[in-house]
């Protein structure tokens, strides 16, 4: 009986260690950072200018995407849902597309995008790199806290669960 207890305890330790390493490694793609977000302006498709500095006081999720990027398209429905679910907690999503306006406009209707979107290849690329994406790959998301500090950077598409986990971690439950 004693041997069984020892083996059980070792297995339990193994499971906890495995679970912890799973959680730790799963969370490494998003980098916790504490840098002030650079002052960036986005010019939306409907002619408005969004300044990151003017969004202080809100949680801002900037999602860089493009119509030629399949992982980006997979992620958009989750972002649309998140904008609905977390708006009351102060979330504002901005979607700069590294793309042509003519390619982006049909996506607004197709995905019922409920947050401002821009279409500027050069400007989007510069903003993305200024926010820390030195690989230049998409999708790339940056969560900025109400004080203007970068809370997390995420390179690659997030599932609905991963996005929800990110937002719950910082904003609370939507």
């Amino acid at each position: 009986m004693r041997k069984f207890v020892i083996i059980f305890c070792l297995a339990l330790v193994g499971a906890v260690a495995g679970g912890f390493s799973y959680w730790y490694l799963h969370s490494t793609p998003s980098q916790d950072v504490s840098a002030v977000a650079p002052p960036i302006n986005f010019h939306t498709l409907d002619g408005k200018t969004i300044s990151l500095q003017n969004l202080h006081g809100h949680w801002v999720l900037i999602n860089f995407w493009a119509s030629w990027c399949a992982p980006c398209m997979n992620e958009i429905p989750h972002l649309v849902q998140a904008q609905s679910d977390y708006a009351s907690l102060g979330l504002k999503i901005v979607g700069p597309a590294l793309d042509e306006a003519d390619a982006v406009r049909p996506m607004l209707t197709r995905f019922h995008i409920n947050y401002p979107v821009t279409a500027d290849f050069t400007g989007g690329d510069q903003a993305m790199r200024a926010l820390g994406n030195d690989r230049g790959a998409l999708p790339f998301s940056v969560l900025i806290d109400p004080d203007g500090f970068v809370a997390e950077r995420i390179l690659g598409g997030m599932s609905a669960e991963q996005l929800q986990s990110l937002l719950n971690r910082h904003l609370g439950n939507g």
Binding site: G14, A15, A17, G18, S21, Y22, L25
Partner: peptide, 10 residues
């Protein structure tokens, strides 16, 4: 057993 349990979790 410890190692395999940890590996399974990953």
């Amino acid at each position: 057993l410890v190692v395999s349990t940890a590996a399974a979790a990953n």
